[in-house]
Computed example of a mutant assay.
Amino acid sequence: MTTIPQQLSPQKLLKTGDANPSESQFRRKLRNLVRRDQVFDFLKPQYHPLLDTRHNILLYIEGVTKSFDGFKAIDDLNLYIREGELRCIIGPNGAGKTTMMDIITGKTRPDEGQVWLGSNLNLLNMDEAEIANAGIGRKFQKPTVFECLTVWHNLELAMAGERGVFDVFRARLNGAQRDEINRVLEQVGLCNQASLLAGNLSHGQKQWLEIGMLLMQKPKLLLVDEPVAGMTHQEMDRTAALLTSLAGEHSVVVVEHDMDFVRSIASTVSVLHQGHVLAEGSMSEIQSNPQVKQVYLGE
């Protein structure tokens, strides 16, 4: 037996104050709800109403510590990401870079410290889904795309809003939504591959597609893990141009080991060592820092 959810009841569908709703009114409201040519408010991406970046800081990490079986992966970490900046995070293996991103995205809970998105959103009080919906997108090192679908359909499925099976089945894109997909296709350089199956893309193109899928969610903060691993030099150059173009509209945090790539995109670099920030500054300042030379650059 099919039941009507509470949010689809006549009382919910009719305007407040309607008395004794008739069956015809209810049917009309229900027909309007499932119109395929209409974009509803819940499909329109909106930033979290409590997001406050008036101090120009989007992400606050303060005094964060995390231990695993007695080993401190993160040790009194303090990091601040400004709104619209592109920040590179470097450091040797075991420095805490992945654990840091796990904490930001809610996958791991710290033992101590605070993590805030803007001035009002305490990420430690939110689960992974709530954090993602608040405006944080994460790209892992290995691209995760739907290889059996076209590039276009990958972006369509990633579109911000309610995208459950029923929503996708009955929805028809309007002109604005199509324009948005085309805009992202152009931004990530995949216009000519829109109808191509994602499984037929090169490694670099899959990376760009996944970045595009994140952009469809309109995040405020993108966390990008080793985006150029396995890429050709030409693909690395295009990835550098892409990430640089995202700064301003988004805050972008890039974790990367390739120093030439970091040098090509970074204005500010943070060096993690033993779970805390060892040094921070421009690439030239980092390269001349004696502590960084000793623990990371091997000099």
Rank of each mutant, 00 (worst) to 15 (best):
L30A: 14
H48L: 09
L190K: 06
M231D: 01
G94V: 02
T150C: 00
I61F: 08
A194L: 06
D111E: 11
H273S: 11
A132G: 10
S251W: 01
I4R: 09
E249I: 04
A266M: 05
L215T: 07
D41S: 15
P227N: 04
L221W: 01
S282C: 11
K220F: 07
D167I: 03
N20W: 12
E147L: 10
G199R: 09
T98Y: 01
T16I: 12
L33I: 09
A134S: 15
G84K: 03
V64W: 04
K97V: 05
N133A: 13
R238P: 01
M101I: 15
K107D: 10
R163S: 09
R36Y: 03
N289T: 05
I131T: 06
K44E: 13
Q287M: 14
K97D: 04
N120L: 08
Y80M: 12
R27V: 14
L13H: 03
G17W: 02
Q177T: 06
D76A: 11
F26C: 07
L86D: 01
L185P: 09
S202I: 10
R238H: 12
Q46T: 15
E130H: 10
S67K: 13
F261L: 07
D260I: 10
G281D: 07
Q187Y: 07
V269K: 01
L272S: 02
L196C: 12
G189D: 08
V151H: 00
G199F: 10
C148W: 10
D225E: 06
L209R: 05
Q46N: 14
A171R: 13
T268L: 11
K139Q: 02
H276W: 08
T268D: 13
S284F: 03
G137K: 00
T144L: 15
V115D: 04
V277H: 08
I104M: 05
I211A: 07
L58W: 05
T53F: 05
Q6E: 14
P92C: 00
V39H: 01
G96T: 00
S288D: 14
G113F: 02
A229Q: 10
L272R: 01
M283I: 12
E62W: 04
Q287E: 15
G137V: 03
L214E: 03
V269S: 05
A129P: 01
D225M: 06
S284H: 11
L278E: 05
D52L: 05
S267H: 13
D18I: 14
G204N: 08
V188K: 03
L223E: 04
R54Q: 12
R109I: 12
M126P: 10
E62Y: 07
T65L: 04
Q274W: 02
M236W: 01
N174K: 08
H203P: 05
L59A: 08
K293F: 01
I89H: 08
A171T: 05
M159K: 15
L77N: 08
Q114V: 10
D111V: 09
N174I: 11
G70A: 00
A95V: 06
G164I: 00
P227I: 02
V39P: 01
M213D: 01
V34G: 07
H257E: 06
L50E: 15
L77M: 09
N122L: 08
V271A: 09
L77Q: 07
K12I: 06
A171S: 13
L278W: 04
G84I: 00
L33F: 15
N174E: 08
G281W: 00
M159S: 06
G63N: 15
A194H: 13
I57Y: 10
G175V: 09
I74R: 00
M126A: 13
